[in-house]
Every structure is written in structure tokens, then in C-alpha cells.
């Protein structure tokens, strides 16, 4: 038991320390991969680190003082969410904390009284409304498949959860696009500032504030891919290979979708993600419960 606690603490500490490096690297790879898909050379894979370093060297410039501590709280709760997952807590609790974190981000954008930032915040809320049902159903799916909500128990399952949760997995991949702010669902804020709502939710963030936002996104990215990994992990140590392979595939797929699709409107996003949730997530869970 104590050994398990040690492992859980070690994994959590590793996440907190290493996630920004991994996330930053992923972000760099994303740009590289995107560039190659578009026939460009692309920046170095370490470019994201250079960018953030530069952001932190700038002066702190805000619309109002509230932005700073609400952004700080957002960053804290994102790290906390990931830490809960890696420490093996209840999956639903992890997702609820994620929602609390997202709420801080929306509040940070809204408190500026800026039109672009506010519209970005509103769109972020629609995004939350779109992905939230699938997220909850995924947690329920894990419970039905493995008999526990606790991540610590889920990773000890005899077989991979994907075998019982194919529908939930596809559904989760769908909302992952929303969560990663990838086209066609980069509704609240894309990674490019040339859209009609400027930079959406991050319009009023600059310098260290934006740097903090970037780092939080790195943490979130690692957290989300860990969720993908959770579908493939089992008590068999070899499943780690499956996790790595599938996460890379998912990563590649997300970049590919980003580069090959145009942005949809928010109502299309809402309709499509709810339909996917109901058809894939809902049916998957119904079947699981029927054949339990």
C-alpha cells in the first residue's frame, strides 16, 4: 500500500515537473508537423519555449488588475486537474476540477469588458457546453468498463478499456479537437490572430499573462493525451507501448484535421458534438450496461 502511495506521489511530481517540457515539445512538434503538411520548413521544435521565454521578458500589461489573479488561479487549477489524474483520483472529480479551471479562464477573459475577449469567453462557454456531456459519459464508460471511477484502479484493469469503450473513444477524440482548440472547432480562439474575433478569449492577454496561458495549455495538453492513454493502459506493462503509439497517432490525427478543415460555426459544433455524444457515447454506455 505504502509503495503504491509512493508511486502515485512520484508520478504526480513527475507530471508537475515534466508536463510543461513535454507539452511545450508537443506544441513545437505540432507546428513542425503542420508546416511539413503545408510544404514549409517550419520553426524549430523548441520554438514554443523561446516564445514563452520572450513573453515572460515583457512588461506586465493588463486591462485591469483582476485579470492577473484570475489567470493565476486558472493556471493553478489546470495543474491541479492533471495532478489529480496522475495521482489516481476519481475521474469525475478530475473532470469537475477541469470545469472549475475552465470557469476561471472564462472569467479572466470576461472581466476585461473587451468585446473580442468577451465574445471569445462566450464561445468558450459554448465549447464547454459542447464537450461536457461526452466528458461525463467517458467517465461513466470507464466506470462501467473497469468497475471503478478511480484512475488508480482503472490503470490496473486486466484488459484495455478501449475494447469495451470504442464509442466513447471516438467521441472523446471528437471533443479533443474542441479542447485542443483545433480547426474546425477553434471557435473561441485559434492559434492565429487573423480571425474575425481577433484572438478571441486571449485577446486581452499579453506578456507574462499570455505566457502563463501558454504554459497552462501545455499542462492541459499532457493531461488530455493522458486521458487518451487511459483508454489503452492495462495491468500488462506492454500496454505502455500501445499508449505511446496510440497517443502519437491521436496527435498526428489532430494536426491533420487541423490542417485539412475549415472552421465551423458554433451551432454546428454544438449539434455535431451532441449528436456524436449521444450516438457513440450514449449507445456505447447503453450496450455496456445491457451486456454487463
Amino acid at each position: 500500500m505504502t509503495e503504491e502511495v509512493m508511486i502515485r506521489i512520484a508520478v504526480t511530481a513527475a507530471y508537475i515537473i515534466l508536463a510543461p517540457f513535454l507539452g511545450g515539445l508537443l506544441s513545437g512538434l505540432e507546428r513542425k508537423l503542420s508546416a511539413r503538411m503545408q510544404g514549409r520548413r517550419g520553426p524549430s521544435v523548441f520554438q514554443s519555449f523561446y516564445d514563452v521565454k520572450k513573453l515572460f521578458s515583457k512588461n506586465l500589461q493588463v486591462v485591469n488588475g483582476a485579470q492577473i489573479f484570475i489567470m493565476g488561479s486558472y493556471a493553478f487549477f489546470i495543474v491541479f486537474t492533471g495532478a489529480l489524474l496522475f495521482a489516481g483520483w476519481d475521474l469525475l472529480l478530475v473532470f469537475f476540477t477541469l470545469t472549475t479551471a475552465a470557469m476561471f479562464l472564462v472569467a479572466a477573459a470576461s472581466c476585461t469588458h473587451s468585446p473580442y475577449s468577451t465574445i471569445g469567453a462566450n464561445r468558450e462557454m459554448v465549447q464547454m457546453m459542447s464537450y461536457e456531456p461526452m466528458v461525463l459519459l467517458t467517465a461513466v464508460g470507464f466506470y462501467l468498463a473497469t468497475g471503478s471511477f478511480d484512475v488508480a484502479e482503472i490503470v490496473k484493469a486486466d484488459q484495455m478499456a478501449i475494447l469495451k469503450l470504442p464509442g466513447c473513444f471516438i467521441g472523446f477524440m471528437f471533443i479533443l479537437t474542441i479542447k485542443l482548440r483545433k480547426s474546425p472547432f477553434d471557435i473561441s480562439c485559434s492559434h492565429h490572430a487573423h480571425q474575425e474575433i481577433v484572438k478571441g478569449i486571449t485577446t486581452e492577454m499579453s506578456g507574462p499573462c499570455l505566457g502563463l496561458m501558454e504554459i497552462s495549455e501545455w499542462y492541459e495538453k499532457v493531461f488530455l493525451f493522458a486521458m487518451i492513454g487511459l483508454f489503452f493502459i492495462s495491468s500488462n506493462p506492454l500496454s505502455i507501448i500501445a499508449v505511446v503509439v496510440m497517443c502519437s497517432l491521436a496527435f498526428f490525427l489532430e494536426v491533420l484535421i487541423d490542417n485539412t478543415s475549415a472552421r465551423l460555426t458554433w451551432d454546428r459544433m454544438l449539434y455535431s458534438s451532441w449528436t456524436v455524444t449521444l450516438l457513440l457515447g450514449g449507445v456505447n454506455i447503453l450496450l455496456l450496461e445491457l451486456f454487463k
Binding site: 484570475i70 472569467a107 472581466c111 462557454m125 461536457e132 456531456p133 461525463l136 455524444t277 449521444l278
Partner: peptide, 28 residues
Amino acid sequence: VFLVIILAFGSSTTLFYWTKWLCKLVSY
């Protein structure tokens, strides 16, 4: 199980109307 699915959707809509009210209050 159908209750679980309804709960999942209902929670997300609940989230939306409270968050937008909250944002209105802090947007100064």
C-alpha cells in the same frame, strides 16, 4: 442508464447559464 445520459447533458446546459451570469457580474 438513460438517466445518466440526461444528467450529462443537463449538467452541461446548467454550466452554461450560470457561467454567463457569473461573467456578467465580473465584467467591469
